[in-house]
Design a protein around this nucleic acid. Structure first.
Lengths: 169, 169
DNA sequence: TCCTAAGCGGAATGTCAGTTTCCTGTTCTA
DNA sequence: TAGAACAGGAAACTGACATTCCGCTTAGGA
């Protein structure tokens, strides 16, 4: 792959991430191309259609989240605190539609890796009696989606509200 | 207004309510007409454009919610219990996009009446020390919107989770 | 019963936003 | 420096909707 081609590919991915976060999974391809400073033709050569682009985005997103879990665990020996930190990170990251795409068809195995990793943490937090035990990891993912799908609308205090709700009474 | 016309108008409103709840504020007019068992022409005679239809829907929705507040208050002398009951009702009702439309331009005065009525209840609940005081009525409306915009996705236990989060610790 | 204004359906038309193709000119890199 | 890979973007295509229009139907009063 030629150096310039690689550069363009990266730019496209970046622009797509922003555009999708902002406009949803059906953000216009032409807009993505424009924002990447690239022609539509170039976009289509790299990503033959929208679903391929979305899958690439989803994969990238999962890796970011996995990293954020690792960081949270490293910084917080306490599992519940790590869960909180992860939730805050992922909501702030706010790549709503990407997360939604994740829930859909694209990159199912990547999603699974994420859920699995998060699940360890959740179980630990629950074993520590720090977190409600009637809410599972899947529920948590769903809640994250909901929050992620309303970027800008949800002030941080809703986050704390949700986190408080998750805590063991 | 002829009896058959009236009947059709009601059917249209009903179909529109469902379609908008399901597909969002830009649900196809043709779909609404079909579901109402009516031709598009008929739909357009009653509601010259989409915004008129949406406004009618919003108004109807506000009345339902106001009634539900009255019922909740009648059934629950305790303000916080009434708030909970109202929230449960309105989320179950789940007319997501209609609520969103409400937040938008259509029927601003109707919305205000609702907020005002709800606000009394919220203040009372807070005065009773039963509800978090760092969350206001507007926030509550927003939360409702978020929930309402994810019909089917949100199981009831999220509701209790949110309500627990709202409670005074 | 008959008349007619009100009402109806839905094909036809217009519009628009996006997608995708394709061809010409440009840029790497061996 | 050749030539393969790449870029750009105009243009054709697509499909989904909104909206109009008009010939036919019907409610309901006289």
């Amino acid at each position: 792959m030629r150096a310039d081609a690689r550069r363009n590919r990266d730019r496209i991915l970046e622009a797509a991430r922003d555009a999708v976060a902002e406009l949803g999974a059906d953000a216009p391809m032409a807009l993505i191309a424009r924002r990447a400073g690239v022609g539509v033709g170039t976009l289509y050569r790299r990503f033959p259609d929208r679903s391929v682009l979305l899958a690439a985005l989803a994969e990238q997103y999962v890796h970011e989240l996995l990293d954020s879990i690792d960081r949270a665990v490293a910084a917080e020996p306490d599992a519940w605190a790590a869960v909180r930190a992860f939730v805050v990170y992922s909501v702030e990251k706010g790549r709503g539609a990407i997360a939604a795409a994740l829930a859909g068809t694209s990159a199912p195995q990547a999603r699974q890796a994420l859920v699995q990793r998060l699940d360890e943490l959740v179980r630990q937090a629950q074993a520590d009696d720090a977190m409600r035990s009637d809410v599972g990891t899947d529920d948590l993912m769903e809640l994250l989606n909901v929050f992620a799908c309303h970027p800008g609308i949800i002030p941080e205090r809703f986050l704390s509200l949700m986190l408080d709700g998750l805590e063991r009474r």
